[in-house]
Each structure stands twice: as C-alpha cells, then as structure tokens.
C-alpha cells in the first residue's frame, strides 16, 4: 500500500464519516427521534411510576440508579443499528463498490463506518442524558471514566454491527443479532438492577455478559457505585475493541460477502 499519504487517508476518512453522519441526520425522524421517545417512556414508567415504589438501590433512588444504564443502552443500540443498516444497505444496493474500487485502505473503511456509528450513538446518548435530567438529578462522579466507557462501548457495538452486516445476506439477517443476542444481554446486563440482588449462581452468570461491565463502569462514572472494579471493566472493553476490530479487518481483507 505504498504511496498512501496521511493527508489522503484523512480526506478519505473524513469523507466517509461525513457521508455516514449525513445519512443518519437526513433520516433523523427514523434515527434520532425514536430512541429519545423510547428512553423517555422508560424514565416515565420504570423510573417514575414503578421506581417510586421500589425505593433506593445502591444508595440512590431507583430512577437515578437506572439512568446510566438507559443512556448506555441507547448509545450501544444506536451505534450498532447505524453501522449494520448503513453497511448492509450499501452492500445490498451495491454502492459499497464505490469504496471497494477506490484506493481507500480497508482500515480507513472500518474507521469511517465505526466512527459514523459511534457518532450517532453518542448524539442519541447526549439527548437521552438531557432528557434524563428532567426526570432525575445531575450526577457526574468521574467524567473521564464515563466518557471512556461510553466511547469504548459505542465502538464495540459499531464494530459488532459491521461484522453482522458483512455476514448478512438479507434484511432479516440484520435483525437476528439485535433481537436474539443484543436485547437479552442488555436487559440482563444490570441496567435495571444491581447484581448484588441476584442469587450467587446468576450473579456469576452475569459476569459472562460483556454489557454488564459497560453498564457497571458507566454507572461508576456517573454515580460512583459499581459491582466490579472499574479498571477491570475498561480492560475487558479494550480487549473487545481489539478483537472485534482485528476480526472485522480480517473479513474486509478477505472480501467476505463483498468481492467474488
């Protein structure tokens, strides 16, 4: 890959990110509004109506306790959804060929889609955070940890979305992972409860769920409470980023589902 200057890479990368951001901003009624409505309903029903009868959890009101998990849930759902739908529809309509015939290196393609997806996740997360403040108080125990966790989580799920899109052959395939894997892992990942409430066996099972570490570490960044050591959680997130990035890059190099 001789001759690819840093300037060229930057232009190709920023073009791809701009295109991805333009796509989800153009479709804002489909991409940005629904998650905000969903999360508002969660706050209203689980936080306000039911939460008031639950009492405290981890030293905070139930509403305050679930806010970090719900924000992170919208971040990872949207980062995943953006990349899986954008990449797969480009593959389906064959306009991914615009990129494949161009000199853009595979890792720039990967960075471009992942940053595009993460950007949507972070915008939705930011709006969800603003909505949350109208239901609960504002807390920020450690901004650096909260930001690190939310960035890494969005990248992990954007990478997951890309891998899903590479393997998908039809539109049904892009909904299988979110429906049968992602949603159960999110709901069992400690968004709505502390794992301290679980029996010993299910508490150990929860430790196998990667989303549990994300939610727990993000809650530590916001509220300062956690079930596991936050350094350990961030380390696991970093491992996921490296493994998924390497695997996605390997698939792009092989041209899986892209080159005959």
């Amino acid at each position: 890959m001789s001759g690819v200057s840093a300037h060229y890479k930057w232009i190709a990368f920023s073009t791809l990110v701009r295109k991805e951001v333009r796509r989800f901003m153009r479709l804002w009624i489909q991409t940005l509004v629904p998650p905000v409505i969903t999360i508002s309903l969660y706050f209203l029903i689980f936080g306000n109506l039911i939460g008031s009868r639950i009492g405290e959890m981890g030293g905070y009101s139930y509403m305050d306790f679930i806010v970090p998990g719900l924000i992170l849930m919208s971040v990872i759902n949207n980062a995943y959804a953006n990349v899986v739908s954008s990449f797969f529809s480009q593959k389906f309509q064959r306009n991914i060929e615009e990129l494949l015939v161009s000199p853009v290196p595979n890792y720039i393609i990967l960075f471009g889609f992942v940053i595009g997806g993460s950007t949507r996740g972070l915008i939705v997360g930011l709006v969800a955070g603003i909505v949350a403040m109208s239901f609960s108080g504002f807390y920020m125990h450690n901004f650096f940890i909260a930001l690190t966790v939310v960035l890494l989580s969005s990248v992990v799920f954007a990478l997951g979305g890309l891998i899903n899109a590479i393997y998908a052959n039809k539109f049904d395939d892009v909904t299988i992972i979110p429906t049968f894997v992602l949603t159960p892992l999110i709901y069992l990942g400690g968004v709505f409860y502390s794992t301290d409430l679980l029996p010993e066996f299910w508490r150990i099972v929860s430790l196998l769920n990667p989303i549990f570490y994300m939610v727990d570490a993000f809650r530590f960044g916001i509220l300062g409470i956690s079930d596991v050591n936050v350094v350990y959680a961030i380390f696991i997130l970093l491992i996921f980023v490296v493994v998924l990035f390497s695997f996605a890059l390997f698939l792009l190099h092989r041209g899986k589902g892209l080159r005959d």
Binding site: I11, Q93, R94, E98
Partner: peptide, 27 residues
Amino acid sequence: PQEVNFGLFEKVKDICVTQGGYYGLPR
C-alpha cells in the same frame, strides 16, 4: 459499472463529491 450502484437517496452532487473524497481530492 453496468448496474446503477450509487445511493439512490443521495443528492447527485454529493455522490460525485464523496467519490472525489475517496480518491483523496480535497473538498
């Protein structure tokens, strides 16, 4: 190509400018 393979929901000019970016052309 033989088949139309650009994003049908993209604007005509954006399709060309984006392709230029993939080839390293400043905006």
